[in-house]
């Protein structure tokens, strides 16, 4: 299941968890657990919101509020990096 998941991510380039779970035939919640597991194991990187969004660095901008909440993003690590981490 995890191999299939990694292959799907690699093939699609950019994909949402919803599309992934429907292609895998599993619930979105189980997919989330699997993504987090792959992240813990070093196959995926979780890309956090830059500090700037929380630091108030763009408070001077009148429309900074429209930044909103950024979605959670996981990035596939290069294979050699993942193997090294294991």
């Amino acid at each position: 299941m995890l191999e299939k998941l990694l292959n799907l991510i690699r093939d699609h380039g950019v994909i949402s968890p919803s599309a992934l779970s429907s292609q895998m035939g599993i619930s979105p919640r189980l997919l989330e657990v699997m993504l987090e597991d792959l992240q813990r194991r070093g196959y995926l990187d979780s890309i956090e919101e830059p500090e700037a969004c929380a630091s108030g660095a763009c408070q001077g901008c009148a429309v900074s509020g429209s930044c909103g909440t950024r979605p959670r993003v996981w990035q596939l690590r290069q294979e050699q990096e993942a193997v090294k981490l294991l």
């Binding site: 991510i9 380039g13 994909i15 968890p17 992934l20 995926l44 996981w74 990035q75 596939l76």
Partner: peptide
């Protein structure tokens, strides 16, 4: 190339009060 999984929130009915507050603050 690199590959990503990007989480998308569920669609939901907008809260006009929240929108009003945001417009007011901005």
């Amino acid at each position: 190339r690199s590959a990503f999984v990007m989480e998308l929130p569920l669609y939901h009915t907008p809260n006009l009060r929240t929108t009003g507050m945001l417009v007011w603050q901005r």
